[in-house]
């Protein structure tokens, strides 16, 4: 069971949370949105191997929605942040992870 850090309650067990899908997918306005853009909003997700920004809800805790960056291979959470905060630079975070890994390899 993962340990997930709620931005408000701190580290809490995974069973208190719900994953709410990919984050930063803006809801289009009804006017001026093409069918293709609407279909993309509804149905297309990035599903990366690596870092993903996701929506989570601490449903059995403070009940707040928040965002998190998680690595889809290792399941490690890299960062959590509040709804409305800008999307972190995933490429930069991935580079930090790689550098950290290299440093640990070198230090061993």
């Amino acid at each position: 069971m993962l340990l997930i850090t709620c931005p408000i309650c701190g580290p809490r067990p995974e069973i208190e949370f719900r994953n709410m899908g990919e984050a930063h997918i803006a809801r289009p306005t009804p006017e001026g949105t093409s069918d293709d853009d609407m279909a993309a909003f509804l149905y297309l997700r990035s599903n990366p191997k690596g870092l993903i920004a996701e929506r989570w809800r601490h449903v059995h805790g403070c009940a707040r929605f928040f965002n998190a960056v998680r690595h889809t291979v290792t399941d490690k959470f890299v960062t959590v942040y509040e709804v409305g905060a800008p999307k972190p630079d995933l490429a930069a975070l991935a580079a930090d992870l790689a550098a950290d890994l290299a440093a640990r390899e070198a230090g061993r």
Binding site: C9, I15, E16, H60, G61, C62, A63
Partner: peptide
Amino acid sequence: IGMCTRTL
């Protein structure tokens, strides 16, 4: 003592 939270 004094802590409270929703949980399971």
